[in-house]
Computed example of a mutant assay.
Amino acid sequence: MVLIKDQLNRNLTINVTPKRIVCLVPSQTELLYDLGLEQSIVGITKFCVHPTHFKSTIQIVGGTKNIKIEKIKALNPDIILCNKEENTKEIVEACKNICTTHVSDIYTIKDCVLLINQYGEIFDRKENALEIIDKINFNLKDFKNFIKDKPVIKVIYFIWRKPWMVAASKTFINYLLELNKFENVYKELERYPEIDIKEIATQNKQIIALLSSEPYPFKREHALEIEKNNIKTVLVDGEMFSWYGSRLIKSFNYFKTLRQNL
C-alpha cells in the first residue's frame, strides 16, 4: 500500500501497484517510458509524441483539454495521471469518477524531482526514479557552473500567435528562463498573457524574442513578423523549456548550446 499526497495536496491511497495507466500529460508519458513502464501504459493523448512509436501502439484518448471519457472508461485503468496546467478541473473531476487520479503541479525542478519520486513509489520503480533524478541533478550542477559568469539577457518567450501570447511569471517556463539568466520582460505579469507585438518596438533593442516550437509551432516566417519591430528572434525547442520529468536530462546541454549561439 502507498499513501501519498499528490501535488494538489490530495490524499491518495494506492493498495496495489497500478498495472493499467492512462496518462493525459505528454511530458509525463515520456517519463513513464523512461521509468520502464511502457507495458503498463494503456492510454495517452494525441500530444504524447515521445517516444514516437506510442502513437501507433497505444490508445489515444483525445487531447490534453478535450478527452474522450468513454474511451478512458473502456480501457479500465487503475490510475489516471493529470496535470493542473495541462488538464482542466472538469477533466480531473471526470477522471476521479473512473479510478484513482494523480495530479501534478510543476513550477520548479524541486517539483519535478518530487513527481519523479512519487511515480517511483506508485509504480514500484524507485531505482529507476533515483537514476533519473541523479542524472538531472548532475547535469543541473554542471549547467549552473557554466551559466554563473554569463551576463543576463532580456528576453520575451512567445508561446502563441494570433493572439500573440507569452510566458510570464508563475510558470515552469519562467523558472527555467531565470535559471538560464534570461530576464523575462513580462515577469511582472502572470501565466500566459496576450501582448501587442507593436509595443515591443518601444522596448530596449537588446531584447531577444524566443519563439517556442510548442504549443504554437513557430517558424522562420513568424519570426519575420516580430523582427519588423526591430527585435532579434531565436527559434527555440519548446520541449526543453516546458517539459519536466526525464526530459530535463537533455535540457541543460541544450541550454548550453543555445547560450553559446546567441
Rank of each mutant, 00 (worst) to 15 (best):
M1G: 13
I4E: 00
K5L: 13
Q7L: 15
N9L: 15
T13Y: 04
T13K: 07
T13C: 11
V16Q: 10
T17N: 08
P18D: 00
P18Q: 02
I21L: 09
C23M: 07
L24E: 12
V25S: 09
S27W: 11
D34F: 14
S40R: 06
S40N: 11
I44N: 00
I44A: 03
T45C: 09
V49I: 15
H50I: 08
P51K: 03
P51M: 11
F54N: 02
T57H: 02
T57F: 02
Q59N: 12
Q59R: 09
K65H: 01
K71W: 11
A74E: 14
L75P: 12
N76D: 09
I80K: 00
C82T: 13
N83Q: 02
K84G: 06
E86W: 05
N87M: 15
K89N: 09
I91H: 04
K96W: 15
N97M: 11
N97T: 01
C99F: 04
T101C: 14
T108L: 06
I109F: 14
L115W: 03
N117T: 11
Y119A: 04
Y119C: 13
F123G: 03
L130R: 08
I136V: 09
F138D: 13
K141V: 06
D142L: 14
D142N: 07
F146W: 11
K148A: 05
D149W: 03
K150I: 11
I153W: 02
K154M: 10
I156T: 08
R161C: 14
P163W: 04
P163F: 05
A167R: 02
A168F: 04
A168Q: 03
T171K: 02
L179E: 02
N180Q: 03
N184H: 01
N184Y: 13
N184C: 04
K187G: 04
E188V: 15
E190I: 05
E190N: 12
P193D: 01
E194G: 02
E194T: 14
E199C: 09
E199R: 05
A201P: 02
K205I: 10
K219Y: 11
K219S: 12
R220K: 11
H222C: 12
E225G: 03
E227G: 13
N230S: 05
K232Y: 10
D237A: 04
R247S: 08
L248M: 15
K250L: 15
F252G: 06
F255W: 12
F255Y: 12
F255I: 02
T257S: 14
